[in-house]
Design a binder for these strands. Structure first.
Length: 290
DNA sequence: CGTGGCCCCTGTGGGC
DNA sequence: TGCCCACAGGGGCCAC
């Protein structure tokens, strides 16, 4: 689900509640959604059975901390505490961070629950994720957070043409595959990769090496435009995505190509084409895109 | 180095 | 109504 506009919407919706809030208690219902330093490799939901995760330390889930900052890079959201401990959140396909009043009934799949004190009184913050493709990374220093983010490409909402030119020239594969690679540019997923290609009028199956400089320039502009428009509408809710207050996003009805295979192209009216590229359903207009 | 396939999960919608 | 299958906004890993 969540691509950059959804994560940014979540970040903004969490800020009023979380900034300055103190974290009093943490309840972990599923240790597997957490990756801490020293845990076996493989990411979320992998260390199960034969491998044993390391023991969490006291401050690892921000217990006892005051929230100082909410930062985002690409699809990743960091809650930064007063001692530079961070909680790095990846929503995967169905992850949510929800704020509730205490004593509200907990939804299912609430894997981690924080009890917090905000300026408006006590609240609960919860990480919920039915499919468990998402999870939380324990980050112990700001340096670790920034080192991790440096391994990703530039944030897609502010990507500049020269950097995109360089990164697309450094790889040989279809454009769609490159745009989904978070080390090329961070924040695009299946929806906004297709939407960006459509706005830029470039076929997603073009090999990156064949792109002319004016095309990459159009692409960079289109990526920023598409993401800005979707963020303004609160992101896309296909099914699961919600902001911290449980609100759905409105960008879904604005998709020009995603989810519209076979329907008329909103630009030229000819039926939209579809195929599987980089393992993902891809939709484009054969007439508009070159 | 790049790709395709499989895996990690749950939930839903369509066809029968 | 039930069952089976395909598919879904994420990414990691492995063989080739």
């Amino acid at each position: 689900m969540p691509e950059l506009p959804e994560v940014e919407t979540l970040r903004r919706s969490l800020e009023p509640t979380l900034l300055g809030a103190s974290i009093d208690r943490v309840k972990v219902n599923r240790r597997e959604v957490i990756v801490a330093p020293g845990d076996p490799p493989g990411g979320f939901s992998r260390h199960r059975g034969e491998t044993t995760p390391t023991r969490l330390r006291a401050g690892d889930l921000l217990r006892g901390e005051t929230v100082r900052q909410l930062r985002r890079h690409g699809k990743q959201l960091a809650i930064v505490g007063g001692t530079d401990h961070s909680l790095l959140i990846h929503l995967g396909m169905t992850g949510q961070m929800l704020v509730q009043r205490p004593k509200t009934r907990l939804p299912d799949h609430a894997h981690v629950v924080w009890s917090i004190t905000t300026s408006s009184g006590p609240r609960r913050l919860l990480f919920r994720d039915p499919r468990r493709f998402g999870g939380l990374w324990v980050i112990r220093t700001t340096e670790d957070l920034e080192r991790r983010w440096r391994r990703l490409g530039p944030d897609a909402s502010v990507v500049r043409t020269p950097e995109l030119v360089a990164r697309l020239a450094a790889t040989r594969r279809p454009l769609k595959a490159a745009l989904l690679d978070q080390t090329v540019v961070a924040g695009l997923g299946n929806i906004y990769a297709d939407e960006s290609c459509h706005l830029a009028q470039i076929r997603p199956d073009r090999l990156t090496a064949t792109l002319e400089p004016p095309e990459v320039d159009r692409l960079a502009t289109s990526i920023r435009t598409v993401l800005k428009a979707a963020t303004r509408l609160g992101g896309s809710t296909l099914r699961d995505y919600r902001d911290a207050q449980g609100r759905a996003g409105d960008a879904t009805s604005r998709h020009a190509v995603y989810g519209r295979a076979g329907q008329p192209c909103p630009t030229c009216g000819c039926p939209l084409s579809t195929s599987v590229l980089a393992g993902r359903t891809t939709v484009w207009c054969d007439r508009c895109a070159q």
